[in-house]
Design a protein around this nucleic acid. Sequence first.
DNA 1: TTGTAGGCGTTATCAT
DNA 2: ATGATAACGCCTACAA
Lengths: 344, 344
Amino acid sequence: MNQSDDPAPIPRKRNPRGVTMEAVGRMAGVSQVTVSRALSDPSKVSPETMARIREAIAVTGFVPNALAGALASRRSMMVSALVPSITNIVYATMLAPFSDELKSRGYQILLSETGFDPEEEAATVEAHLSRRPDAMLLTGVHHAARTRRMLLGADLPVVEVWDITETPIDLCVGFSHAASGRAVAEFAHGAGYRQAAGICAGDERAQRRLSAFAERFGTLSGTDVPVARTERGNLASGRALLTQLIDKRGFTGGVVACSSDVLAQGVLIEAAARGLSVPRDLAVVGFGDQELADAVEPALTTVRVNREALGRAAAQALLTRIDGATPSRSVIDVGFTLIRRASA
Amino acid sequence: MNQSDDPAPIPRKRNPRGVTMEAVGRMAGVSQVTVSRALSDPSKVSPETMARIREAIAVTGFVPNALAGALASRRSMMVSALVPSITNIVYATMLAPFSDELKSRGYQILLSETGFDPEEEAATVEAHLSRRPDAMLLTGVHHAARTRRMLLGADLPVVEVWDITETPIDLCVGFSHAASGRAVAEFAHGAGYRQAAGICAGDERAQRRLSAFAERFGTLSGTDVPVARTERGNLASGRALLTQLIDKRGFTGGVVACSSDVLAQGVLIEAAARGLSVPRDLAVVGFGDQELADAVEPALTTVRVNREALGRAAAQALLTRIDGATPSRSVIDVGFTLIRRASA
DNA sequence: TTGTAGGCGTTATCAT
DNA sequence: ATGATAACGCCTACAA
C-alpha cells in the first residue's frame, strides 16, 4: 500500500530547514499572505491574528528572506556605494552619514572598493548591478564608457560624489578640486608668502588640486612652484617629500601646500626634526580638515570640506529620486572653506 | 472580435524593461536554460551557441539577476561583515584583506557598522540574516544572547575576530587583549620604569588592555597606576588626557601606556608642547603599530597586531567552512608583538 | 480582514 | 548539447 498506489506527486520542500512565511502561517492558523501583511503593515491584520503570528515568529525564529522579497517586489532595499578605498578616512567619514541616512529608511549599504582604475570600477559596477541595488553612489566623475553605459541602461538613481561636473550620469554632490587649489594659492600669496612648493599623494583629484595651486601661485608670484609626488599619503611620505624638496629641489622656504592633512603633518614632523620653525621658516597648508588638523603643533591651516554634509546630501538626493521625485538640483556644490590656523 | 472572444489569459510581463535570460535566449535562438548554462559553465554549451549568446548579451547589455540566482540556488554569494566603526582605521585595515580574499572567490561584502551596543549589533545581525549571507564576520566575542541564538539558528559559518575566546559561536581569529596589556607592563617594568599611567579610549577591549596593564604594572612595581579614560580616541583626546594625568592626578613621569597609537601621538604632541623630553621625562607606549608609529618623532614603541593576516585568516576560515570542510582549528590566536622604538 | 492565483528571474532535476 | 518543468520565498493583484 505504500509503494504501488502513489504516483501522485508529493510536493517536497528541497530544504526543510529554513523557516518561511508559509510555516509561520501554518503555526498561526493563517495563510502565508497574512503573515506577509502582518510584517509589512500590521494595521491590515486583526490584533488577535497579529498576536498569534508574533508568537509563531518568536517560536520559530523566523527571519524573512529579503532576497525573495526583493525579487517579487523589484526593490532590493540595497544601495551600492563604491569608493576608491575604505581605509582612506576621507571616504569613510562621508560614508558614515550616507549610510546612516539610508539605514534610517531601511536600506542596506553594499560597499566596495574600486581602487583608482576605471576598468576595475567598471567590473565592480557590474557586480553590484547584478545585485539590483535601488541606487548607487560613485566616487568621482570620471568613469569608463562602459560604466556610464551600464548605469544608464540600468536606469537607477546614481550620485557621483567628491568632485563636480556639469554633466553627471544622474546626480552629483561635490566640489571643485581645482578651485580649492587656487583658493589656497590666493590665500598664501595674500598672506605674504612669495615662494611655494607642493606635496601631492593619491588620486587624480589630489593632483588636480596641487596643479591648480602650483599654476595659480606661479602666476601670482612669478616664481616656479615645484611639486613633489608620491603614491601613499601617509606621515612617512610627508616627511620624505619635504626632505626631497629641500635637499634635492632647492626649496629654501615659503609655503608648502599638501594634498592632505596627513601629509601636512608629516611635513610638520620633518620640519621639527630639522629644527625649522613653522610657520616662520616654513608655512604649511593641508587639505581636508581632519580631526588631527586642530590637534597638531602648530595647528594646521587647511581646507575644510564638509564631508558629513556631503554624505548626507548624497543620500537625500538618492532618496528623492527613489521616491520618484525630481531633485530641485541635480548638481550640488558643497564648496569648501579655508581654515586658517597657526601653520600658515 | 477583440473584446468578446478572448478570455484566454495573455501572459504579460509586468516590467518589460529588465533584460532577462529569457530575452537573451530568444535573441540567440535558444532557451533560457541554455543561457544560464552558458554563463555558469561554458563548456556545457557548443561553441556556436556560446558565440550567439555572447553576442546577444553584448547587444542587450544583459546583467544577470543575482537575487533570483541566490533564491534558486540558496547561495547568495554575499558575506556579511559587522564592525563597530568603519572610520576606525583598525577595523578598516583588517577588512581590506578580508574583502580581497573573499572577492577573489566571487563573494561580495555586505558591510555594516554596529556601534558598541550589543542590542544594536543584534538588530544589525537580523537585518543581515534576512539577506541570507553565506557567512558572517563579527567583531569581538561578546554578543547579545539573541545574537547567538539567531546565528546558531541560521546555521551559517561565523567568524568572530579581534578578540579571542574558547567558546566561539563557530570560528574565532584574534588575540588576547589582556595578555597584550600585561606584555606592555612587563616590558615597561623590565626597561626600568617604576611609575606608570594609562590612557584609554574606545571600546571594552581597549579597557581590558589598559586594566590588564595597570594591574600587572601595579603588581610589579608596587605603585598605583592611574588610568584616564575618554570616549573618542583622537589626537586631541591624547593631549587632553596627558594634561589631566599631569595637572589633576599628580602623574610626575614614568611610562604612559595608551590604548591606541593615535592617542599616543597626542601624548607626544602634548609632551613636546610642555617641553617634556620623550622618553627621558616621559616614556610612551602605543597600541596597533599603525603607519604613523614609525613616522612620528620620537618613533613610537607599540604593540603590533598583524591585522592583514588576521583579516586574511578570517576569510580563509570562512571559505573552508563554506566549502563544507572543517577547519583544522576553530580558534586561531594571531598573537601580537611588542615593537620597541624610541619612545619607551 | 483574509485568502487564492500568478509571477519575479534564476538554478536544479530530469528528459531527450 | 539542449529543453521542459518545478521549485526558491515572497509580493501584487484580485476575489471573497
